[in-house]
Design a binder for these strands. Sequence first.
DNA 1: TCAAAAGTGTTGGCCCTACACCCATGC
DNA 2: GCATGGGTGTAGGGCCAACACTTTTGA
Lengths: 248, 248
Amino acid sequence: MEFKKFLQIESEEAWEKYIPTLSIDSVIFSFHQHSLHVLLLKMKDMDAWGLPGGYVEKTENVDQAAVRILKDRTGTENIYLHQFHTFGDRNRSEDAFSEYDDSIWYKQRFISIGYYALAEYSKVSLVIDEFSSTVEWHSIDNLPSFMMDHRAIFEKALLTLREQVNHHPIGYNLLPEKFTMPELQKLYEGILGKKLNRGNFYRKFLRYDILTKLDESRKGGAHKAPDLYSFDLEKYNNALKEGLKGGW
Amino acid sequence: MEFKKFLQIESEEAWEKYIPTLSIDSVIFSFHQHSLHVLLLKMKDMDAWGLPGGYVEKTENVDQAAVRILKDRTGTENIYLHQFHTFGDRNRSEDAFSEYDDSIWYKQRFISIGYYALAEYSKVSLVIDEFSSTVEWHSIDNLPSFMMDHRAIFEKALLTLREQVNHHPIGYNLLPEKFTMPELQKLYEGILGKKLNRGNFYRKFLRYDILTKLDESRKGGAHKAPDLYSFDLEKYNNALKEGLKGGW
DNA sequence: TCAAAAGTGTTGGCCCTACACCCATGC
DNA sequence: GCATGGGTGTAGGGCCAACACTTTTGA
């Protein structure tokens, strides 16, 4: 019963500090081991996994709250963050905390503002919170079962990412400073959920004229060593204003 | 002072009925007289104009609330409605109702969920509410000054419309059943904020293969009578799933 | 030397741009 | 008939898919 007691105490503080009825859920993406990953927490007294989230302090902007929550979980606030949808169905959180008293903060009806974040894998150090027993990256090709409507929130985030891939600096924020064409292509295939033609992808991206080819290649792997590239940030940002041309 | 008294009474009801801190603002678009219009209200004791809005009842879904609010203002609930952004800056509503007591409902800090609506002009009959002195369509090329952050909310709605023009049934919902190519083009030019080449627009849209050419033309105007078209709803919806191809 | 991955060449088709031309209508 | 706007023709270029070929690497 120790955890229940803890929740009771936290609950009292929450009513003082936060805007009621309102929460934030973050879908934090990263890219490593050839695939897109999403950050998930396992709650201490639940079987299912959930997205990292939090609440909005009475005196802070909603966007600031999202940054704060993200920093608490990843140790860094220098992460690309974008609001994508607000989830307001009446019953979306009603089955959680069913064994608790109705007056507990966590048992409210929450309207949740969804943010997606694009994190560079190597720069993130995962931080666990008091509510969770585990915090882990999960490949989006192999996800566990989610609590409440978090599956739908994740799906909506991925769909939004897909729609915005030509207008937002998605490649830049998910890849390390230096990367190869095959890595970039894998990232795009993960976001779009389909295979792309290798040669055509290669040339299409070069045609955008937003990459700098470096005088190095990725040694160490088997087979031919691929060239390394980085983004030309000025050209990249200019191109994104108009949107990268052509569909996927 | 009659209006102030009225607000006091409404305020007490509001605390009972609605989720606190949360509001909805709607950007209702229509198309007529060759240009995009947006529905605006003038508050009774303010100079500036505002977007129609409302609050979420404690027992309804947020999406349902948006439909209800829209119906109250337009007399119909058969309107395309889409959530586009949530506005949560701490100070966004702080200068409104400054001469009222802090305990009044309307003086809370509101986080507002923005919806855009696409209304067919001829099917809407404007309904005024008790807070407003005027309700009017305004051409987006000639807008008055707005209250609070409603200008930013409108801009964000228009930008979203622009980004989603290939994925959402925007033409279908803003035009009457039968329309001409020049009308369709004007609509697109209004949304995109730029002129398009006539002949190329014409052929590009025909190539989508989502229009039915009718055996009629729009008589009565000067010059050559343009052909009338309507959307082939089945083909249209299929095409939108993948998104209409090509940029603007 | 061989398989596999990376880089590059090639070809035909489609769409886009730009501009030009014809057609229909009200004045 | 003439100005105006609507419908259509056309030539050039760019992008794209598909596929094949060459190069580089580790085993």
